[in-house]
């Protein structure tokens, strides 16, 4: 079975890889490119632990094939911080203790970052529905929602400056 050649952009960097037709984007990220920050919790698009951003849209990378990345712009958890500067969502997750085991955290952070790319004024309800595709079994979501709303406030303040 011959492999497919894919040219894409991952976290702002041009990337080429070979993958098999049946490999998911998540398989490619984790097993071919060593980007293991995206997690596999269900491989059926139910848990959101593998969330990435594809051309600005949040996507479960377990439901996307590796070959579909051709010509796209992909953002993964590894690209959310700018060098050693954490994204406000990441910083607020730490400050609010919004992670316990930390396994769902990359997916939540990517999804929340995408929310805040869309709006800096999400209501609690909007944040809850936006993140309803990400499962967390540890926290009961309370501190996650607080962290996201607090990150939005920080980003609003930064944007106003």
């Amino acid at each position: 079975m011959s492999k497919h050649h894919v040219t894409t952009t991952i976290n702002g960097e041009p990337m080429e890889y070979l993958c098999e037709a049946q490999q998911t984007m998540l398989d490619v990220l984790r097993d071919e490119l060593g980007l293991t920050g995206s997690k596999e919790g269900c491989s059926s698009g139910d848990c959101g632990a593998c969330t990435i951003i594809v051309d600005g849209n949040i996507t479960c990378s377990c439901l996307m094939l590796g070959v579909e990345a051709e010509g796209r712009k992909i953002e993964t958890i590894e690209g959310i911080a700018q060098g050693d500067r954490l994204h406000p969502v990441q910083q607020k997750f730490l400050e609010h203790a919004a992670l316990q085991c930390g396994f769902c955290t990359p997916g939540f952070i990517v999804a929340a970052k995408a929310l805040l790319d869309t709006t800096l004024n999400p209501t609690e309800e909007e944040a809850r529905y936006w993140l309803a595709g990400n499962l967390c079994r540890c926290t009961g979501y309370d501190k996650i929602i607080r962290a996201v709303l607090d990150a939005a406030a920080v980003m609003r303040a930064e944007a106003g400056r």
Partner: peptide, 17 residues
């Protein structure tokens, strides 16, 4: 045997606790 049919709470099911 999957999270679609075995439904654990999601963020929109919960209030602040």
């Amino acid at each position: 045997p999957g999270f679609l049919d075995y439904r654990i709470p999601v963020a929109s099911d919960m209030p602040m606790l």
